[in-house]
Design a protein around this nucleic acid. Structure first.
Lengths: 209, 209
DNA sequence: GTCTATACAGTGATAGAC
DNA sequence: GTCTATCACTGTATAGAC
């Protein structure tokens, strides 16, 4: 057993068990047993199972998003008008970096992928609130790189890109050959940048005149 | 209460409750109460909660995928060499059609979106097995439309597209303005088709020479 | 075959002693 | 901060009624 405090031991145990068996299938008893703590410690330190889940995610997302901001800062300091490819690379690379971490990586990315499309928990809200700072920086950067798109269409296409990212990470093993993280980032940037560069979609909604 | 048989009443109730509160947050008791059935009826008709979830999904996915196959058949009967845009439209439209159904639509699509990124259940496997027939028809059609890509890269980009689709549907309400289904399909086809048409990504994996 | 009533082990949560 | 005891509720299984 490590020298860490109870709170951190619980977070570590929860991270591993959630990633392994999912949220609902992981009982607080199995977490506290693995962490060498008492069952009630979870409710004392975090308040509820749901709050524990959120704490696990916050511990991952904060550094990830900081990395994203840092990369965009560095990019804009280096290049006057960054291309879509460069901005998307800055956006996607932190995920690949996490993924490439030898041991904790796969655990974290699997958890991160589960964030979206989760039904009733507050995870989605947490992720989107953590994401606000990212959007505030990346959407203007993207809008400058693809000035032919309205702000709204930039946001829509960013959603498309995020969907590609999360789905790919989630179903990594379904991709035949299972390419490395670097290679996949490359393919995703190629695909996404071309999508962003595509002309604005017509907004003719109704009839066929 | 309807005249339907118990089995169907349970499926209807489960579909609505799952879509509303998620899978783990929905108890079998709440399902059977809403369906006007006894608790044990679930295990009698389906075997387990997990099997019930799968049955709910199968009832949605089978007609959806049949619609996809039918549209591709019709397209290839009409056009000799369908474009990426046309193939992607055939692929995506059934989802939009489901979505546009006034009452059941939103329920189904929310459920369908939860299919991916689900942690430990067998849902993912079910969806992918149901998807095999689709892939067998659509991947060759796409490969013919974008002959500059290897078969593997076609599959990878199809994954990207599926991710965009599911994430967009899941987080529909996060998109400012919440465009209509038709408009969103149009934007997704524009984005995805451009992505498919992009040149093959370099597969230089390692160093920077 | 279909349905009911009931029992059981495991769950998240909480109050209160130490 | 930590622990024990206890709560209401969950999914599942089964014996037996119609």
């Amino acid at each position: 057993m490590s020298q860490l405090e109870t709170k951190d031991r619980i977070l570590d145990a929860a991270e591993n068990l959630f990633s392994d068996k999912g949220f609902s299938a992981t009982s607080l008893r199995s977490i506290t047993t693995l962490a060498g703590a008492n069952l009630a410690a979870v409710n004392y330190h975090f308040g509820s199972k749901d709050a524990l889940i959120q704490a696990v995610f916050r511990r991952i997302l904060t550094p990830l998003n900081n990395d994203r901001l840092q990369r965009l800062d560095a990019l804009e300091a280096r290049v006057q008008e960054p291309s879509v490819d460069e901005v998307l690379t800055a956006f996607l690379t932190p995920v690949a970096t996490l993924w490439s971490e030898s041991k904790r990586g796969p655990v974290l990315v699997r958890l991160f992928a589960k964030t979206f499309a989760e039904p009733s928990t507050n995870i989605r809200d947490l992720v989107f609130s953590e994401f606000e700072g990212i959007a505030a920086r990346y959407i203007p950067a993207l809008a400058r790189a693809v000035p032919h798109l309205s702000r709204r269409e930039v946001m829509t296409r960013l959603h498309f890109l995020i969907g590609s990212m999360t789905h790919t990470v989630t179903n990594w093993d379904m991709l035949a050959g299972a390419p490395g993280a670097d290679e996949l980032i490359e393919q995703m940037v190629t695909y996404g940048a071309a999508g962003f560069r595509a002309p604005a979609a017509l907004t003719t909604s109704k009839g066929t005149p």
